[in-house]
Design a binder for these strands. Structure first.
Lengths: 109, 109
DNA sequence: ACGTTATCTCACAACCAGATGAGACACTCT
DNA sequence: AGAGTGTCTCATCTGGTTGTGAGATAACGT
């Protein structure tokens, strides 16, 4: 009688799909020109929404939307300006940005 | 007469949208579960398409498509097997993967 | 008080990237 | 030769994401 269950006879794979949810979330957040541009601009210090929008050539509500996603992910922080309380200045959370980079390093080595 | 061109009076931004094409391409490539899973699986050594597909629970033609994108980007290399010339074994290009990580580091520091 | 500015939120439309299925090709095995 | 395997390519469909517009809120300047 033949051997039973001859499924995938000599495939050198342990069926374990690696868990990449964390680095995938980081990459998905960065995989947008506006969001990456925001992070790049914020390397030069805090900026308000209208400054970022002007620098990127995008609309303010659009930038605000992307800032919300970055804020939810913890990569940026928001703080109202003392002088003009209408403006919201955003700054990078350097520790979170480094953590995202390290997470990506888990896959890219 | 009023001052001319009072555009964006005191916005501390030099209008320069930073060039993020390289890190954006890297992030876009990684922003997919199948592609990131492939890169993660290949950390354990070379694998053929069917092994990767089995490990990820994806169809082989789908995995082949994603491998083509990773190959075009230079992150993986393909080599036919000597024993069974139908199988194509893929392996990571560690130098290119490190370069991608460094490119992302330009934005995430 | 009024008009303006800065930001946010939400609903809708448009678009892009991924999944799918069919087909083609080359190779292996019997 | 014929059946089956492994991989690739391409066209089409679909789902999710982005951009957009309108509206709301709060604060500033006059």
């Amino acid at each position: 009688m033949p051997t039973e269950l001859p499924v995938l006879p000599d495939l050198r794979l342990a069926y374990r799909a690696p868990d990449v949810t964390a680095p995938l979330a980081a990459a998905s957040l960065l995989a947008d020109g506006t969001r990456m541009g925001i992070l790049a601009l914020l390397r030069g210090g805090p900026h308000c929404v209208c400054e970022l929008a002007a620098g990127l050539g995008a609309r303010e509500n659009n930038v605000s939307n992307h800032l919300a996603r970055l804020r939810d992910a913890g990569l940026v922080r928001a703080a109202r300006d003392g002088a003009d309380s209408r403006r919201v200045y955003y700054e990078r959370d350097e520790r979170a940005c480094l953590a995202a980079l390290l997470t990506l390093g888990e896959v890219l080595r």
